[in-house]
Design a protein around this nucleic acid. Structure first.
Length: 220
DNA sequence: CACCAGGCAAGTA
DNA sequence: TACTTGCATGGT
């Protein structure tokens, strides 16, 4: 928790996830796979202009048309297929209603999402946390990198392993998980890159013991 | 020019 | 299970 407090007081509220509706957040979660958010924003904007940024709109678009609208987000052929498969799932399971989807038990919904082709653990958890406000911790490459740089975990620890490290030792609070992950991404983007800038890192000297990890002084 | 960005699935051994 | 490759645009 000391890590969270430090990041929070340094960077302040990150206001994640940008998006006017739950569905918009879910679409963003798929489009941002291995892609910069900037490129996704343009695609989201084009979908809005066309008035199709809703379950019915995506469902009724031709795949080729959808591809052209989301071109800026990269992997556009694969992602148009993934959006199609996702909205089909939404209609098959919940009649196209996000509200009904939200009523599903988290554990059940997570497993169902993981069965959807094109939705892996990070996308599923982003949909749950940022789209539906469920208390699920999202792990991404920055999270892994930061933890491994600090010697907490191996660089190739499994997704669940990293996720459990947080969820086993933090209160299951949606707002905390939201802010914590957003802060880790911000730190990753600004300082914890391939060539790290540890001299400016706000976590210099901070301990992770509140994570349930044995005391470990960070060394820079 | 190279490298990266808020991953995932499919193929191979 | 563990590794490799394809997917693609746009910014630095």
């Amino acid at each position: 928790m000391e890590v969270y407090r430090k990041l929070s007081e340094t960077y302040g509220p990150r206001n994640w996830w940008p998006g006017e509706t739950s569905f918009e957040v879910m679409v963003g979660a798929i489009l941002t796979q291995n892609t910069s958010w900037k490129n996704v924003e343009k695609a989201i904007e084009r979908l809005k202009e066309k008035g199709v940024l809703n379950p019915k709109g995506i469902r009724e678009l031709r795949k080729s048309t959808l591809s052209s609208l989301i071109r800026s987000s990269g992997y556009f052929r694969i992602k148009s297929e993934r959006l199609k498969v996702f909205v089909d799932f939404l209609f098959d399971e919940y009649g196209g209603s996000i509200k009904r989807m939200k009523r599903e038990r988290v554990g059940v919904l997570r497993r169902k999402l993981l069965d959807v082709k094109g939705i892996g653990p990070e996308t599923a958890d982003s949909i749950l946390l940022y789209g539906l406000k469920k208390p699920v911790f999202v792990v991404d490459s920055y999270t892994k990198r930061i933890l491994s740089r600090h010697g907490i975990l191996s660089e190739k620890a499994s997704y669940e392993e990293v996720q459990n490290l947080f969820m086993d030792h933090l209160p299951h609070d949606e707002r905390l998980f939201n802010e914590y992950h957003a802060l880790l991404v911000h730190l990753g983007k600004t300082l914890c890159k391939k060539v790290p800038r540890c001299d400016r890192c706000p976590l210099k000297g901070v301990r992770w013991e509140a994570q349930g990890v044995r005391r470990k002084e960070l060394t820079y």
